[in-house]
Simulated assay, not measured.
Amino acid sequence: MADDTSDPGDVARLRATAHPVRLRIMSLLTAEAMSAAEVARSLGITHANASYHLRQLHDIGELVVESEEKIRGGVAKRYRYDATREVADRSHAIDDRIAYARANAVEVERRLRDAARGSGSSSDLEAWVPVEAWHRALDLLHEASHLLHAAALPAGTPDTVHISATTNAFTMEGGLTGDAARWIPAEVAR
């Protein structure tokens, strides 16, 4: 059942990020600010394509301009993605959430093709759990996501490991919903 109470800005943000190239850009810009030319070189796409996707992500508030520098008579903006900022409500219409999940799936598939041998974790579960266990799991996923985003360094930094981490956890129909199952991140609740 679609939820038509979503904020139009949140829906636009979700739709705009539901693109594999934009997901790659946000991951890339977690570690360092980059210009369109640097993003293009790093991802093997055209400068025009990189500029277009950067503008789209900036226009919906996913990227910030960290700095500007004059280059050959023009101005190059250096963009950055801050994953630690306040996360918008994700209670969007199901079609928007599915589009985002599909874009994520394409990106995870690309990353798996480049996966190295070594440690990792993969999990899939559909189950009924106590609300307290659900909230604790979300706190841990939230903490892990913020830890990895905050620790991200530029590609190729010595003594770093190239990783992929994707999470997607949500309540299903049939159990407690609304305020009875609502989660507030532990650091916000304090």
Rank of each mutant, 00 (worst) to 15 (best):
V131Q: 03
D89W: 00
H142Y: 10
V65I: 13
H149N: 12
A144C: 10
R78V: 08
L43W: 12
S119W: 02
S27H: 11
G120K: 04
E143P: 09
N49V: 15
S122E: 14
G120R: 00
V106R: 05
N49W: 12
R113H: 15
W134E: 01
S67M: 08
L28M: 14
A105Q: 02
L148Q: 01
G73V: 05
I184W: 04
L147K: 12
E132L: 12
M34H: 04
Y52G: 06
I45Q: 11
T84K: 03
A50H: 03
V108T: 07
V131K: 02
A150M: 01
Y81S: 08
E62D: 13
A181N: 03
Y100Q: 06
L148N: 06
M1Y: 04
G174F: 00
H19Y: 13
T84W: 00
G61A: 06
E187W: 08
Y52W: 13
N104Y: 01
H146I: 09
A186F: 10
G178C: 05
R13A: 08
T46C: 14
E109L: 07
I71N: 13
T46A: 15
S91M: 09
H58I: 07
R78L: 04
A12Y: 08
L57G: 04
A127I: 10
M172I: 11
S35N: 11
M26L: 15
A101M: 00
A36C: 13
R102V: 11
H135T: 10
H142E: 14
R15K: 11
S35K: 06
A93F: 03
A76C: 00
E173D: 12
D3L: 10
D59M: 03
A37L: 14
E187F: 01
L14H: 02
V64Q: 05
A76K: 04
S51D: 15
L138T: 09
N49E: 15
W128T: 14
D59N: 09
E66Q: 04
A83E: 08
W183H: 05
E86W: 00
I184A: 07
L176K: 13
A99V: 04
Y79K: 06
S35C: 13
K70I: 13
R13M: 04
L176H: 05
G156T: 09
S164Q: 11
A103C: 05
H58R: 09
A133N: 14
D7N: 14
A150E: 07
A31E: 06
R117T: 12
L153R: 12
N168Y: 06
L112H: 06
P8L: 03
V188Q: 14
K77G: 01
N104D: 11
I60Y: 03
A127T: 13
H47N: 15
R41I: 13
A16W: 02
L125D: 02
L63I: 06
Y100G: 01
H142A: 10
A101V: 03
Y52E: 14
V21D: 08
S27T: 15
A40F: 03
P20L: 07
H146C: 09
Y81C: 04
E68P: 02
G9V: 09
H58F: 02
L29M: 10
R80Q: 09
R41V: 14
A103K: 05
A99G: 03
E143K: 03
L147D: 11
D124E: 09
S145N: 12
E62C: 06
A152V: 03
G175N: 02
V161N: 04
L29P: 01
A169H: 01
P158Q: 01
L23C: 05
M172S: 08
R90H: 10
A16E: 10
S51C: 11
E173K: 11
A155W: 08
